[in-house]
Design a protein around this nucleic acid. Structure first.
Length: 489
RNA sequence: GGUACCGUGGCCGAGUGGCUAGGCAGUGGUCUGCAAAACCACGUACAGCGGUUCGAAUCCGCUCGGUACCUCCA
C-alpha cells in the first residue's frame, strides 16, 4: 500500500505532505517535562501523541531518531514568584540536592510513560548536561549581533531580529501588537524591550544551580536548551518538532528566532502541537492546581476518581480524540473508553477461535485500507478506532454464524488488527491483576455455596469442594465462626 | 484589550458543501433455563440569527457562550 502521509504543520496552518529532509531518516524533537513534580494527565497527551507519530513513522519504514528532553534547570515556580527556580524551590522544600529532585521525578516520569506503553525516546538529553552547547549557541547569536549584554545577563534582541526575519511567524503574532501589549513589570530595566527574552541569566547569590560563562556565573535561558540540543542530535535543520500548544508562544517562537539568529535558517520543517486536556472545560495544569496525576489514576487515590483506571484506559481515552482537539476529562468519559476498549480486545481474542468457511461474505480488506487512510491523514486515531469497531462488529457476526470468512481472511484480519491495535496504537491487552482481592471474593463465594450444601446435608457436594480445593493447596477449616481457609505451604 | 481556536444528540467525540462517523448510556427485539455477551432496530445532533448556494454542521457576516496564549519569570 502506498502511503502519502500528511501532517498538520503549525507553521503553515495546514496539512502538508510529509517529506523527510534525508529519507529514510527522520529526526523528531519533542519538548519533555520539567521534572519537579509527578506527571499528570496533561503530560500523558504529548507522551502518547508523539509515541503514535514515532510508532507510525517506524511502521512506514523510516529510521527515526526521537529526541525528548528533560528540563532540569531554570524554570520558575509560577508567575507570581520572582526569580525562583522550580527545581530549586522543590529542593529547598524537601531539603534535597536539586539533582536529587530531578532524578526522583525523572524516574517516576519514565515509569509512568512505560505504564502507558509509550516507547522510550532514542535520546533523552537534559538541559544541565548541555550547558556548554547552550553557551556556544549564545556566542553565535551574540557574534551575529542579535544579542546584547546587560548586567551580566544576555538578552535576545527581538526588535533587531524582526527587521531581518519575522518574529511571530509560528504563533501568528506581529511585533507591533507585542509592542502595544507591553505591560509595565518590575525587573525589566535590563532589557531594551519587554518582549526580549533571556539567553543567559546571571544568578543571584541565592540561586543554587549556576555555571560559569563568559558573561557571568549564571544559567541558560529556557528556550535555549531545545535549540541547542535539537541541533546537536538532529542537525541544524530537522524534520519534526513537537510539543504542547501551550509552548507555541513564546517558547517555540523563540526557538525559531534563536536558530535563525545563529544559523540563518529555520531549524524545523514540520511543527506539531498537541492540544490540551481539559477538566470541567478548563485546561488541566499545574498552575491551576486542577490536575490529576497519572499515579493517582492508576491507583484511584484522587477524590475526583471513584476507582483506579489502568494505564491502557488512559491511553485509549486519549487516542479516541484527535491530538489537535481539546479533550474533556470526566469519569463517565473514562468509563466509556474502558468499555469500548474491552470490546475491541474481546473481538480480537475471538478471532483465534473462529471457524473458517469456504467463502468470505465480508470485505475486511477495505477496513484495513480505511485505517491506514486515517493514520495517513494527520494521525487520525479516532477514525482508526471507529473502523476497528466496525471490524469488531463483523468479527462478532462471523462468531454468531451470521457471516463467514475463509481461513486466509481470518489470518489477514488477525494480522492487521493486531498491527493496528498493538503495534501502531500501542495498546496492550492486559487483564487487570488484583489477585489477592479476587481470591478473597472467590473464596467467599465458594465457602458460601459449601455452607449452603452442608446446611441441607448435601455432604457429597461440600466434601467435593473441600477435596478439590485441597488439590490447589487450599485448606478449609470449619470453625465455630464459620469456615476459614488458608494456603498450605 | 490583542492573537488563535472552539461551541455536534444524555456523555465523550469524528466530520471543511450533497453520502449512517464511532464509542458509552437509554429503549424495543433476536438468542438464552435466567443473566451476561453478541446481533438487529430506534434518537430526524450540529449555540443563535442572517447571508451565499440547487443544496451547509461544513463557506461568509453578526450575536451569544467557552478555552488557550499574550512578551516579567519559566
Amino acid at each position: 500500500m502506498k502511503h502519502i502521509l500528511s501532517i498538520y504543520n503549525t507553521l503553515s496552518r495546514k496539512k502538508e505532505v510529509f517529506e523527510p529532509i534525508n529519507p529514510p531518516h527522520v529526526g523528531m524533537y519533542v519538548c519533555g517535562p520539567t521534572v519537579y513534580g509527578d506527571a499528570h494527565l496533561g503530560h500523558a497527551r504529548p507522551g502518547i501523541t508523539f509515541d503514535i507519530v514515532f510508532r507510525y513513522l517506524k511502521h512506514l519504514g523510516y529510521k527515526v531518531r526521537y529526541v525528548r528532553n528533560i528540563t532540569d534547570v531554570g524554570h520558575l515556580v509560577d508567575d507570581a514568584d520572582e526569580g525562583e527556580d522550580k527545581v530549586q524551590k522543590k529542593a529547598q522544600l524537601e531539603k534535597l540536592e536539586p539533582m536529587e529532585v530531578v532524578k526522583y521525578f525523572s524516574d517516576r516520569y519514565h515509569k509512568n510513560m512505560e505504564q502507558l506503553n509509550a516507547l522510550p525516546p532514542s535520546i533523552e538529553p537534559t538541559a544541565s548536561g548541555h550547558i556548554i552547547e547552550q553557551i556556544e549557541l549564545v556566542k553565535k547569536i551574540l557574534e551575529n549581533g542579535y544579542a546584547y549584554e546587560s548586567e551580566g545577563s544576555l538578552y535576545f534582541d527581538v526588535e533587531k531580529y524582526n527587521k531581518a526575519h519575522h518574529y511571530g511567524k509560528l504563533s501568528g503574532r506581529k511585533i507591533d501588537e507585542l509592542m502595544q501589549n507591553t505591560r509595565e513589570l518590575a525587573g525589566q530595566e535590563e532589557k531594551r524591550n519587554s518582549f526580549d527574552f533571556a539567553l543567559w541569566k546571571k544568578a543571584d547569590p541565592t540561586h543554587v544551580m549556576h555555571w560559569p560563562s563568559p558573561w557571568s556565573e549564571g544559567y541558560p535561558g529556557w528556550h535555549l536548551e531545545c535549540s541547542a540540543m535539537g541541533a546537536k542530535y538532529l542537525g541544524e535543520t530537522f524534520d519534526i518538532h513537537g510539543g504542547g500548544m501551550d509552548l507555541l508562544f513564546p517558547h517555540h517562537e523563540s526557538e525559531i528566532a534563536q536558530s535563525n539568529a545563529a544559523t540563518g535558517h529555520d531549524p524545523v520543517k514540520y511543527w506539531m502541537h498537541n492540544n490540551m486536556i481539559t477538566i470541567n472545560g478548563q485546561k488541566m495544569g499545574k498552575s491551576l492546581n486542577n490536575f490529576i496525576t497519572l499515579n493517582e489514576f492508576f491507583t484511584g487515590t484522587h477524590e475526583a476518581l471513584d476507582r483506579a483506571y489502568p494505564p491502557m484506559v488512559i491511553r485509549f481515552f486519549i487516542l479516541q480524540a484527535h491530538y489537535r482537539s481539546t479533550l474533556d476529562f470526566s469519569t463517565d468519559a473514562l468509563k466509556a473508553a474502558e468499555k469500548g476498549m474491552r470490546k475491541l480486545f474481546d473481538a480480537f481474542r475471538l478471532l483465534s477461535g473462529l471457524k473458517p468457511a469456504q467463502t468470505s461474505s465480508l470485505d475486511v480488506k477495505s477496513l484495513e485500507e480505511k485505517c491506514y487512510e486515517a493514520m495517513d491523514d494527520d494521525f487520525n486515531t479516532p477514525i482508526v478506532i471507529a473502523n476497528l469497531f466496525e471490524l469488531t462488529r463483523l468479527i462478532n457476526l462471523v462468531n454468531d454464524g451470521k457471516e463467514s470468512l475463509t481461513q486466509d481472511d481470518i489470518d489477514l484480519t488477525k494480522d492487521f488488527f493486531s498491527t493496528l491495535l498493538f503495534d501502531i496504537l500501542g495498546l496492550i491487552d492486559e487483564p487487570e491483576k488484583d489477585d489477592s482481592k479476587l481470591i478473597d471474593y472467590l473464596m467467599d463465594t465458594i465457602l458460601t455455596i459449601r455452607g449452603e450444601a452442608k446446611a441441607r446435608k448435601d455432604y457429597a457436594t461440600s466434601d467435593k469442594i473441600r477435596d478439590e480445593l485441597a488439590k490447589l493447596n487450599i485448606e478449609i477449616k470449619d470453625t465455630k465462626d464459620g469456615a476459614k481457609w488458608n494456603f498450605i505451604k
